[in-house]
Design a protein around this nucleic acid. Structure first.
Lengths: 199, 199
DNA sequence: CCTACCGATCGGTAGG
DNA sequence: CCTACCGATCGGTAGG
């Protein structure tokens, strides 16, 4: 029998599970993630892993949550103190390119992969992924609007159209980097962003 | 014991299996496809299904092949007899938008989904998906070059850059349509293509 | 956090 | 194309 663990130790174990899950899921997908593999790689029993979450869906939701936190730390938070509107847009797009260049996760952008995996399914995981995707696009749209108001983007700019095109450049970067290992892709993404957001 | 089937009947059954597999895989992914589910939905035994392919990987490859054939029929073949270069590019981009608008597959573009699913894996399925993706981009690039040569696109056009941006618009259309059911997305895609390829 | 176990399902095979 | 079956693994539970 294992000795009783402190709350801190329990939370640390939980964090280890989630981190490993995130790395596995970025390659195999959230459905390809299995309790047995997780237990094996962490040197634990399946029951020990599952005890922290109850069900696989709860584990998946914890992984989505951790991915959102990591993404926030690695992209928007790295933008630094730049003004809202166009300066923010340019900085956050550059932060996105840099995030994928750094290869923080072996499978590239977790949310791009999760969006493709769950877009045809239903349930809490789909809903969580969709909600976070919406948040990200809302953030972009807010700053596009401010840029237009400030006169930094043409007054006839359609914010939804620009968000659509920015998203396209981002999705393409993940695609070219992950599927084709195209090392020229980051430069192409930067050039495309420059064309959309001015020099 | 079932009566002996003719070659034609055997091929018909095989085709039924592949078609159903394609519909399932476009939603659940090629890994989420299972022999048991397939057998159940087709009213066959698992052995009856698997007998046509031998292994699950062979079935997956047959599905990729069928998806490629269907894609060719539904996109490049619908372009009609338009001149190579810029006219072809405009027509094939419009055919792509129309293809996704028609919702031929419940999960959207099969290759976009398969690319995201297999970009971190290795093996014959990954290789097949990657090769078809490369073919598609090569086709686009060939016509971009011709358009430049013909003087229909600026002489300083970087073909790989334009292919990258065209791919971004395509990936974004699938993303907005599948994940967000955004019915305005096709119009945004058309507008983005127009901006990239002239009015 | 463990051992021991559950029914269901996985891909695949033998034999006809 | 079927029945019958294989070992492995799935998510999850009981009980401690």
């Amino acid at each position: 029998m294992s000795p009783r663990k402190s709350v801190a130790e329990t939370q640390h174990t939980r964090q280890r599970i989630v981190e490993r899950s995130l790395a596995i899921a970025s390659v195999e997908g959230l459905e390809g993630l299995t309790i047995g593999r997780l237990a094996n790689e962490l040197g634990m029993s399946k029951a020990g892993v599952l005890g922290h979450f109850g069900t696989k869906v709860s584990l998946q939701l914890a992984v989505v949550d951790a991915a959102a936190t990591a993404f926030t730390e690695e992209v928007p938070r790295r933008v630094g103190d730049v003004r809202p509107g166009l300066p923010y847009l340019r900085a956050v797009c550059e932060a996105w390119v840099s995030y994928l260049e750094r290869r923080s996760l072996p499978g590239g952008c977790f949310f791009t992969a999760a969006a493709a995996e769950f877009d045809g399914r239903s349930g809490p995981v789909h809903d969580a992924v969709t909600a976070l995707n919406a948040l990200w696009q809302r953030d972009l749209r807010v700053h596009v609007r401010r840029a237009v108001t400030a006169g930094d983007l043409p007054s006839d700019t359609d914010p939804d159209q620009l968000v659509y095109e920015l998203m396209g450049v981002m999705l393409a970067l993940n695609h070219f980097l992950q599927l084709q290992h195209d090392e020229a892709a980051p430069a192409r993404a930067r050039r495309a962003f420059r064309r959309l957001l001015g020099t």
